[in-house]
Design a protein around this nucleic acid. Structure first.
Ligand SMILES: [Mn+2]
Ligand SMILES: [Mn+2]
Ligand SMILES: [Zn+2]
Ligand SMILES: [Zn+2]
Lengths: 150, 150
DNA sequence: CCGATTATAAAAATAGTTATCATTATTAAT
DNA sequence: ATTAATAATGATAACTATTTTTATAATCGG
């Protein structure tokens, strides 16, 4: 009647944390689980904190920020700084992508355009830059929100 | 022997401020002048504040932030949020452009690639988005800084 | 199971920015 | 030019997102 969480799905997350060289702790398991069980979703620290609260967990805000940063450094998560002032995190995908962000409802759509990627390299090369990363975000109204404004 | 500042160049700035519907005040004249006399440069609130201090002006930090925001709303300046946490302002150009940012020395190079702009429209259209704006920033090492790291 | 090590929660600190407010400056109307 | 109405200013406090500190607690190899 122990409360060990040894479910199959959870054991995968434990392995991922271990392989990143981090100790397996409750907050880290819980936080990673939120990402893994909501694939393709983007979360702010605040959203993660609220979700944990909703699940009845007692995890401090500082811990959320710390773990998110550790997961980013470990290569489990990617951080985006869009425009809103608060960072957004998502599971690291195999492949890079950029984002369309609805300024009305906040919906995020991912895309990858090879032509844009290639031109970016060319632009940087022409300017003598060695590219380390780039960030392309298109803001606008999604199909749903567009209807509301006519 | 009055200290009226009725120089030719300054009168242009006065007109610009008036035409934005804002009162012509010393801080606003001084701040706009910094931008106009350093065309193509990008400034943070902090840089503007320091520059004013260096010129012996006594302008509060709050005023700098207020004026920058007002100039942005008036369409005189454009605000960028790059990645660093602090906003960067520049004179509003006639034409849109994107940025290459050196993560070592902070140098900013502007560029405009029609092919990228066009593809962005297509991507958004395909996703059913009505674009309001976009932000593309390429981070890396500029030609000078690249040399230092070999 | 133990103990060295590392992680945690809570609180305080920080950075960038915005709001408050009493005082001063600008502007439009005398 | 004076005046009155109104808006802007600087000092400072407040705020938001995030990081650091600290004292306690959990982890994990042996
Ligand atoms: Mn994404
Ligand atoms: Mn620019
Ligand atoms: Zn929407
Ligand atoms: Zn550089």
């Amino acid at each position: 009647m122990s409360n060990k969480t040894t479910t199959k799905d959870v054991s995968l997350e434990i392995k991922e944390i271990q392989e990143s060289g981090l100790r397996v702790t409750e907050p880290r398991k819980k936080i990673l689980h939120i990402f893994e069980s909501n694939e393709d979703q983007h979360f702010t620290a605040d959203m993660i904190y609220s979700e944990l609260k909703k699940q009845g967990e007692n995890v401090g805000f500082a811990t959320v920020y710390r773990v998110l940063t550790q997961f980013e450094e470990a290569g489990l998560l990617v951080r985006h700084n869009f425009d809103s002032g608060h960072a957004v995190f998502e599971l690291k995908k195999k492949c890079h992508h950029d984002h369309l962000v609805c300024i009305s409802c906040g919906k995020i759509i991912e895309f990858l355009d090879d032509s844009i990627e290639a031109r970016q390299c060319k632009v940087a090369k022409d300017a003598g830059f060695e590219v380390t990363s780039h960030s392309l975000t298109i803001f606008g109204y999604c199909s749903e929100c567009r209807g509301n404004t006519k």
